[in-house]
Design a protein around this nucleic acid. Structure first.
Lengths: 212, 212
DNA sequence: AAACTAATTGTACGATCGTTCGTACAACTT
DNA sequence: AAGTTGTACGAACGATCGTACAATTAGTTT
């Protein structure tokens, strides 16, 4: 067996290697800025200044601001998946996985993975009413997230209406993020945890169907 | 009695009258734009072009962009109060007033009083992580709204924890707005109505305390 | 009719925006 | 060693941003 042949994929070009590292640094910083200032408030010049590189150097990586925004959204989605979705996969589908998922989300918001709180909360509100590829991309990730929560909820046998329950649970999460960031109120997360616990307890009883 | 003496307040100066009307038109349009593009995306030049007045004419009314933003927030708050808060006052404090308030909010979002959905949802997410007077103003109105919902909830005798219930109810409203605008999904409002009905039914039973 | 006042306008400014272009240099290929 | 490729740079572009200020128009007061 040739050593390293399967570790270093195909390319070992030091130039593109360096380029990709620069690109990663740009995108990480871009996601941080965008979570605070929005994807429109994110400017190429400011990004270059903060990273101490040239404006044209930043621009060359993406070719247009729209492409930078799209790449930033994708990069933030990867961070979100690694921080929220993947840790919950250690549990098999069911209530335990759901609780890990929701707790993971609240931790992701609370520990300020992005300085402005949840990246997607910020950019969804920014682009929800505009046309364009950036909005479509954001909406696509939002749909993916909603679907995943719904499926995770649906894996619990007692749940009667997964769509409805997923709607309410995600509402608690986003509300906690919004209240915490806007009002510097750490109690919001405890409110959300109580709401989640209460709602899941309700879903586990026959009363949930009787209440219709 | 002198006719009209109490109707036309003190001033009858046609110039300031015209000025105030212009100002109202500017602010109405500004709130519409800001609900879609945000308060930063709102530019004085664009505002002037759309209203077919001069850029300096718009600017003169406010003296700075920050003052325009602050005035826009106040104008939007007045519209919100008239459309959501005041109609619910026809009912005395209690469950009926709360239901009117929540239904009023959902209608305010659903019928697109502002083209981008709820004005405050949009600008809260935009300014929540930035410092400054505009953020402070938005946060102030947000606190007022939260307090009012909490007090309205607290007027219902069966409610054990008004803070918690208000948190959850508002979460449903904002989630409906967000889903509706981003995904063009009118069903989101029905989801919110179901969630509200279900949660209020739960609050009216002894089970709400037993579930702790 | 003249003097005054308030709303609105036109012109101009410096700064910053996204974008384009030619160039410099390091790294890889032959 | 010579040639090619990829990243990063500096300078400049037209457009738009918020802002400043003098001129103009419309309405009120004397």
């Amino acid at each position: 067996m040739v050593k390293g042949a399967s570790v270093e994929v195909v390319k070992v070009d030091g130039r593109v290697e360096r380029g990709e590292q620069t690109r990663r640094q740009i995108l990480r910083r871009a996601a941080e800025i965008a979570s605070v200032e929005g994807l429109e408030g994110l400017s190429i010049g400011r990004l270059a200044t903060e990273l101490e590189v040239s404006k044209s150097g930043v621009f060359a990586h993406f070719g247009s601001k729209e492409e930078l925004q799209l790449s930033t959204v994708r990069a933030a989605a990867a961070i979100f998946v690694r921080q929220v979705v993947e840790p919950a996969l250690v549990e098999p589908p069911g209530r335990a996985r759901l609780e890990l998922l929701l707790d993971g989300w609240l931790a992701y918001s609370e520990n300020r993975t992005f300085p402005g709180g949840c990246f997607f909360y910020a950019v969804q509100a920014e682009f929800d009413a505009r046309p364009g590829r950036v909005r479509d991309s954001i909406a696509g990730f939002g749909r993916e997230w909603n679907s995943y929560v719904r499926e995770t909820v649906a894996a619990i046998p007692e749940v009667a209406d997964p769509d409805q329950l997923a709607f309410e649970l995600v509402a608690f999460l986003e509300m906690a993020n919004a209240q915490s960031v806007l009002h510097d109120d750490p109690h919001a997360y405890e409110r959300a945890r109580v709401a989640v616990r209460n709602r899941l307890a309700q879903a586990g009883t026959a009363a949930s169907t009787a209440l219709r």
